[in-house]
Simulated assay, not measured.
Amino acid sequence: MTYAGPVDDLAPVTRTGGVPLVPAGFTWPQCAECSGPMQFLAQLPVNVPGAQDVEAAAVAEHVLSVFMCQNDPGLCDEWDPVAGGNRALLFPRAGLTPAQVPAGDETLLAETCGIDCTARDAAPYHEARGKWSEAYGRPLRDVLGQLGGTPSWLQHDETPACPSCARPMSFTAQLEEGRDDGTAMNFGGGGCGYAFACAPCEEGSFLWQC
């Protein structure tokens, strides 16, 4: 996933930032620790079952929307998949409309970044990231993460179990913090976020490591 320039806050595309597109009846997630509204980070396509390529992701049937508390960074266990400091919500793609954004200084990112998806040969993520940078003459920070594939853990494997069926969840995406310090997501400084989904159960999960 690579930086494609700024896009509209309501664009129905793969992006970080902006306003989430949500189904009817949506309630903005609140942090379980501080009770404040979470910050919307990204909307990501979830591949149809059995599909692994970028083209399939482009027509995915679901969207995973990732939220994380930034009201008291570091104090609400926002890195943990089950502590309640973040949420990953899986929605059917059809019929989504812009959410009503609650009041607060930490609900939206400073920039809405469009994401391009480029297929790379099966290789460790950090190697594919470096090869893309060399091939296109662009900085590493223009790589915003990976869609599908295998997570490149900064620490140990923390693949979450689905809260509904208890099976290991499917890896959806790995997110870099962002292109610059002024607009980046907060994953502890140089960290990565990891998004997972269980499409049959319509469940999502998120965590980060640094």
Rank of each mutant, 00 (worst) to 15 (best):
V54M: 02
M169N: 06
T112Y: 02
P160E: 10
G191T: 10
L147Y: 00
V101Q: 11
V59S: 12
T27F: 08
H126P: 12
E176M: 15
P163H: 01
P151Y: 11
T172Q: 07
A24F: 08
G182Q: 11
F26H: 14
A199P: 12
L140C: 06
F40D: 13
F67I: 14
A123D: 10
V19F: 08
C165H: 02
M1A: 15
V66L: 01
F67G: 14
G149K: 02
P200L: 10
A103N: 03
P160I: 12
G148F: 01
A128G: 15
A51N: 05
S170L: 08
C31M: 14
F40E: 09
C192D: 00
G149S: 06
A51D: 10
L144H: 06
R120T: 14
A199S: 15
C165L: 02
P160H: 10
Q39M: 13
G178D: 05
P20N: 12
A99T: 09
G188W: 05
R120Y: 02
S164A: 14
G18K: 06
T2F: 10
M1P: 11
G190P: 07
A173V: 06
Q209M: 13
V59D: 02
F67Q: 13
P23E: 07
C117T: 14
L90E: 05
D142V: 05
Y194T: 13
G18T: 12
D116H: 04
A173Y: 05
E158W: 10
E106F: 06
R93C: 09
G190T: 07
F67L: 14
E127D: 10
Y3K: 08
C76P: 02
A119D: 12
Q39N: 13
P37R: 09
L64W: 07
P73H: 01
A24E: 13
L96T: 14
A60R: 01
T2Q: 12
